[in-house]
Amino acid sequence: GKMTGIVKWFNADKGFAFITPDDGSKDVFVHFSAIQNDGYKSLDEGQKVSFTIESGAKGPAAGNVTSL
Score class of each variant (00 low, 15 high):
52 T>H: 07
17 A>F: 14
59 G>H: 11
37 N>M: 11
12 A>I: 13
22 D>E: 06
52 T>F: 09
14 K>G: 04
46 G>N: 05
67 S>Q: 12
21 P>F: 04
20 T>K: 10
45 E>V: 12
54 E>H: 02
68 L>E: 15
19 I>W: 00
46 G>Y: 04
12 A>V: 12
31 H>L: 14
17 A>R: 00
6 I>A: 03
10 F>L: 13
31 H>S: 14
28 V>A: 02
57 A>D: 15
60 P>C: 14
67 S>E: 14
64 N>W: 07
39 G>F: 10
20 T>W: 03
27 D>W: 05
33 S>E: 11
32 F>R: 04
29 F>C: 15
66 T>Y: 00
44 D>F: 14
55 S>P: 11
58 K>N: 15
31 H>A: 14
57 A>E: 15
66 T>A: 07
36 Q>L: 12
44 D>T: 12
25 S>G: 13
60 P>T: 05
29 F>Q: 09
3 M>Q: 08
32 F>G: 02
51 F>S: 00
47 Q>V: 09
41 K>M: 11
2 K>F: 13
13 D>R: 04
66 T>M: 03
68 L>N: 15
19 I>E: 00
65 V>G: 12
44 D>Q: 13
33 S>N: 12
35 I>E: 03
46 G>W: 04
45 E>F: 13
32 F>M: 09
50 S>E: 09
32 F>V: 09
16 F>C: 15
43 L>H: 02
48 K>Q: 10
48 K>H: 13
35 I>F: 13
57 A>M: 14
29 F>K: 12
6 I>N: 03
37 N>G: 09
17 A>P: 00
2 K>L: 12
14 K>L: 05
52 T>C: 14
48 K>S: 12
12 A>H: 11
7 V>S: 00
49 V>Y: 02
58 K>V: 15
61 A>W: 11
49 V>C: 04
20 T>M: 08
46 G>F: 04
65 V>L: 10
50 S>I: 12
54 E>Y: 03
31 H>W: 14
47 Q>W: 06
45 E>M: 09
43 L>Y: 06
14 K>V: 02
7 V>Y: 00
53 I>H: 08
20 T>E: 08
30 V>M: 10
16 F>D: 01
29 F>T: 08
54 E>D: 09
64 N>Q: 10
31 H>V: 10
23 D>Q: 03
38 D>A: 10
43 L>C: 10
61 A>E: 15
33 S>K: 06
5 G>E: 01
67 S>F: 06
67 S>L: 08
23 D>A: 02
9 W>C: 15
43 L>K: 01
37 N>L: 11
33 S>F: 06
32 F>W: 10
40 Y>A: 09
25 S>T: 07
24 G>A: 02
3 M>A: 06
53 I>K: 05
5 G>Q: 00
20 T>V: 08
35 I>Q: 03
42 S>E: 10
53 I>L: 11
14 K>Q: 04
